[in-house]
Design a binder for these strands. Structure first.
Length: 118
RNA sequence: CGGGAUCGCCGGCCGUGCGGGUGCAGUUAUGUCGGCACGGCGGGAGGAAAGUCCGAGCUCCGUAGAGUGCGAUGCCGGGUAACACCCGGUGGCGGGAACGCCGAGGAAAGUGCAACAGAAAACAAACCGCCUGGCUCAACGUUCAAGGCGUCGCCAGGUAAGGGUGAAACGGUGGGGUAAGAGCCCACCGCGUCGACGGCAACGCCGACGGCAUGGCAAACCCCAUUGGGAGCAAGGUCGAAUAGGCAGGCGUAGCGGUCGAGAGGCCGUCGGAGGGUGACUCGCCCGAGCCUGCGGGUUGGCUGCUAGAGGGGGUCGGUAACGGCUCUCCUAGAGGAAUGAUCCCGACCGCAUAUGCGGCGACGGAUAUGCGGAACAGAACUCGGCUUA
């Protein structure tokens, strides 16, 4: 497959987010601008899926949209980074809207190896 | 911000391939040729999409009856689906003018407010004054002296012109009048009442009379007039799932008559009804056999509503205009943890610094090149008309 990113590769329902955010078996990694949560999918394994959480505290709709877009772009352009059968939730922290694609990729790269062990 | 390249996203139409064929995707609802993958065609954020401050459409709840309360609006006329918006007038204020600004009903219904200053801030009063009369023991001037006159002082009275304070001082200016003064009298202006005329009206204008009465603030309470049912697309419809008398406490379903029935019981009427609705309160009205309170538990999914509309643009006619009529033409996002993007290159724009050369005595102005930085406000969420803030 190429670098596509369709609806099936996103987390779209509230329970899917809550499963990773609550104290369950998700692995957690913290970078200066993000919190990354990774856990195995329930049911049949598919490609890795992404969900992004950006609260209102981080800015208006424009800033929050930009954070989501950059995160999705970063996820899309590195298909090998996350294993099959894994869900990823990214929680943005203050200042994230100032980052470009290269900054996000560099931050994620530093913690990837720890998350892979999950 | 514009252009290009590459990689993507959302939904529409078309095609190819794969597997399937009473199946496929989805736990179900659902979709109907769909599902997955790839390709093609054409579409995809704003002037404010924002704040959610007004006004509507649409939807449901409801029946709105009366009184009280609460909110909104507040010169007049018009536009509009409607408005607190828009247009045109009137009046006021500012300005030399062009023009600009204006929450612009009522202060003789009542309550209240006015710092500082000032004598006094509202049934007027009298600080410095002005004037009249009286007193003369004493003081001064005039005089040879007394008296008289004047100054000063004290007492009684008349005044509100002048001074001074203030945002504002009980009509203004000028003249007459007077001891001094005062609408005391007169002219003009203002104000009030009445009448005529013009205007749909706000109002204007003219005349007569009154002799000043009614100081200001209503974005202080208030009064008056007009007006307002509530909630909002998580509205609502539909399908599905789950909970469905799990526990504890409290209140009630009384009765009577008729009728059907073998009975249990059902239906109708009357009375009684815990509680609920009428989202402010009271009355009234309506529902009513189960309801209320606390604890605990579960679902918050699919389709629809969902985008062609008080729609945009052109022409023409009516109107001072807002706008309206007729006609032609265009189709322009529909997401749902939420699409409309990311990266790179090039080019414009702005700011700063440096360099070069130009104009000018100079402060400086503007030009080119290079480097660095910036590039706003902000993201549709049912749809429109406004306002406001960026």
């Amino acid at each position: 497959m190429g670098f596509s990113f369709t609806k099936s590769l996103r987390l779209r329902k509230r329970p899917e987010f809550l499963r990773l955010q609550q104290q369950g078996g998700a692995r957690r990694a913290i970078t200066p601008h993000f919190v990354l949560l990774v856990a195995a999918q329930v049911g049949p394994e598919g490609p890795a899926r992404l969900g992004v959480v950006v609260t209102r505290k981080l800015g208006g709709a424009v800033e929050r949209n930009r954070i989501k877009r950059v995160c999705r772009e970063c996820f899309r352009l590195s298909p090998g980074a996350f294993a099959h059968g894994v869900d990823l939730v990214v929680i943005a922290r203050p200042g994230a809207h100032m980052l470009g694609l290269a900054d996000v990729r560099a931050e994620w790269q530093r913690v990837l190896s720890r998350l892979r062990k999950a």
